[in-house]
Design a protein around this nucleic acid. Structure first.
Lengths: 135, 135
DNA sequence: CTTGACCCTATACCTTACTGTAAGGTTTAA
DNA sequence: TTAAACCTTACAGTAAGGTATAGGGTCAAG
């Protein structure tokens, strides 16, 4: 089995070596084996695990949630249902954030549509709306 | 003119007193007048300005962007066009964030749809996808 | 005249996901 | 053999928007 140092692994997966130490500290990666002089040494499994982490992050999972997914993945007695539950919760969370952003965007678009873009800010309907007492 | 202390103003607008000092430090609020003993004293304008800040925040503006809007609002020579520009930039920014979240949600929904929710995690298609080498 | 509720400043801490730095040990290429 | 290029730990710093705390002064009620 070929084993590599932290810098090479980091380069392979496109991440900083510091991030790997950080993941180990958080428990996302198991403590690496060490050489006699204390260098971390990684096998092929580490790169696979790191790519899992990066893909899950790209899907919007926080590192804490990634840790939960990894724990389920590591446990052969864990249930597919649990993974599905975490995924569904994340979908709901993302949907909520989308809704909130849509509302913001709608509110801004309404203000923007009323603004001619001419004249001084004294007649600006956007600022007028922000200054309105109702809310 | 009735003037109130920081705690009452904070309560009126539903915000912490510490946040008000923080806003003053950032320049969002002008330095408050002080009593002989050093207490901050606020008039009616402060509450108006704070509500402006809170509404703008609720629309997704960062405090830095709020500061920009307030500077435009404060300057009688500023142009409505500039306010419109800031608003349009924010709309574009929010639209981008929505798109990114939509892509995440779609990715997760696809994974979730393939998962029966039965059995052990060894057969879980969500974990399998996260472990896939392509990406 | 004392107690409690305020207020002041300055500093530290919180979250998340890292990056950067210091001070030092190791390994590799010339 | 020596210099570059690694590696180690521990700690500090980043963004953003605050909150919490320490240590002190002030104000109103009883």
């Amino acid at each position: 089995m070929q084993s590599i140092t932290i810098g090479k692994l980091a380069k392979n997966v496109g991440i900083g070596a510091g991030a790997l130490r950080y993941y180990e500290q958080l428990g996302l990666l198991p403590p690496a084996q060490r050489t006699a002089s204390g260098y971390r040494v990684y096998g092929a499994a580490a790169a696979t695990r790191l790519r899992f982490i990066r893909r899950a992050q790209a899907l919007g999972f926080s590192l804490e949630e990634v840790a939960e997914l990894l724990a389920l993945s590591d446990n052969p007695r864990a249930r597919a249902r649990d993974v599905k539950r975490v995924t569904q919760a994340k979908i709901a969370d993302i949907a909520q954030r989308i809704d909130a952003l849509e509302r913001m965007k709608q509110g801004l678009a309404t203000l923007e549509a009323n603004c001619s873009g001419h004249g001084h800010t004294g007649e600006c309907p956007i600022l007028a709306a922000l200054n309105q007492e109702n809310s």
